[in-house]
Design a protein around this nucleic acid. Structure first.
Lengths: 218, 218
DNA sequence: ATTCAAACATACCGACCGGTCGGTTTGTTA
DNA sequence: TAACAAACCGACCGGTCGGTATGTTTGAAT
């Protein structure tokens, strides 16, 4: 691997040959890991799809696991940056979460798929690696949501429930609307967005008109 | 395999030697598939844990995939029977769903784990098999919930949202409370139960006399 | 007791896959 | 253009695992 020119702060210079290869490998890995199970994706297949050989692959990545993790961490970092921007604006909790969902639904299919993939695949790695992956995922979405929810609770907009737990509920609610059936129920992503916010904030019970003036909890 | 004495209607007679072996194999498969990833569980390991050899295993099950599927289908059938009983009682939607959650939380750890396992592993099978697995899971829990929810909508207790979608939201809400963090937040499963019902029915928004005076479960 | 099929055990095969290694190309520098 | 290192190739290895072939035991019916 070449750490020589890899700095955490990306500068936009002309891409090296090596960098282009690495990018191609990471891209191929994304597609294949999305399409098939971890165990079924072979290093040979990844190399082949990248137009290089296994030798070249192992020149840049020390192992299959490392390739997967680098791919996933990069993907999660992209999401974190995107979602952070979406949540940066001021407004009510509902508005900010709406922005987030909007950004999420506007993502291309494969990018959304990666967010589901990581939740599916964490369990196949040993504890130390798994923990790192979980943290990476955590910081890419749930912890961002948690911050917004914490604000919402502080401002009396949300019920005083454990913020992290609420964040997970929110993520879970969004994830439900990613299934095929949801596409059948809602005509556009705007409808989905409102549905998610309504379900998460107001729940599934009926008779939810009069909720404005009531006392808050305790 | 011996289909000779396997009838859909189980009669309680003395278990054949072969049946005991099959049961041991299925049991071992459960434990191993729960503990490790599908690809990492070897047929040899399953046989060894059952106290037999690979030859015996392949005498009863034609393939690894088939063994996994039989194991999972049996597990899901158990759940379906249990949950059906829990939902059979009359009452409000909230009460019936409460019964269901109760039954769910009372399940031993490994049985709960199997419900999560199937959602994790569906993606590793080819479409025809996957579809069958999905249907099996679907009928073990979500479709039961859907029926209750349909009643709730009919009676004006729930908002007129697509019942199937609501059922998935409910399942997702329950699943969130299975994490480690939830055990840290709630002291007992009774607290968890009320939390799930509150979140699912009323949402996360404040401005509601949430827990105290309201009609909580039972 | 004989028989015969089901229920196992043992040894093995073939395929695959992650990873390695020696050698070759390519590009850069002096 | 000589020299050197990074990039890359492709054949190969060690090991594993699903699955099979074949022999041996059990047990119940005849």
């Amino acid at each position: 691997m070449n750490e020589s020119s890899d700095s955490p702060q990306e500068t936009s210079r002309a891409p090296t040959k090596s960098e282009k290869t690495i990018a191609a490998l990471l891209c191929a890995a994304e597609e294949l890991f999305l399409a098939k199970n971890y165990a079924e994706v072979t290093m040979g297949a990844i190399a082949q799809r990248s137009g290089v050989t296994k030798g070249a692959l192992y020149h840049h990545f020390p192992s299959k696991e490392d390739l997967y993790l680098q791919m996933m961490h990069a993907a999660l970092a992209r999401k974190r940056a995107l979602f952070s921007r979406a949540l940066a604006c001021a407004g009510t909790c509902r508005e900010r979460l709406g922005r987030l969902i909007e950004a999420f639904f506007d993502l291309p299919k494969n990018e959304i798929g990666l967010m589901r993939l990581v939740r599916r695949d964490v369990n196949i790695f040993a504890p130390p690696v798994r923990a790192k992956l979980v943290r990476s995922y955590q910081s890419s979405l749930p912890s961002l949501v948690e911050a917004v929810i914490r604000d919402g609770i502080r401002d009396g907009e949300l019920a005083p429930v454990d913020p992290r737990l609420l964040a997970w509920h929110f993520v879970a609610t969004v994830e439900v609307t990613l299934g095929r059936h949801a596409d059948f129920v809602f005509k556009d992503s705007r409808a989905k967005l409102n549905h998610v916010l309504d379900i998460f904030l107001r729940g599934a019970a009926a008779a939810r008109r009069a909720r404005q003036g009531a006392l808050s909890y305790e």
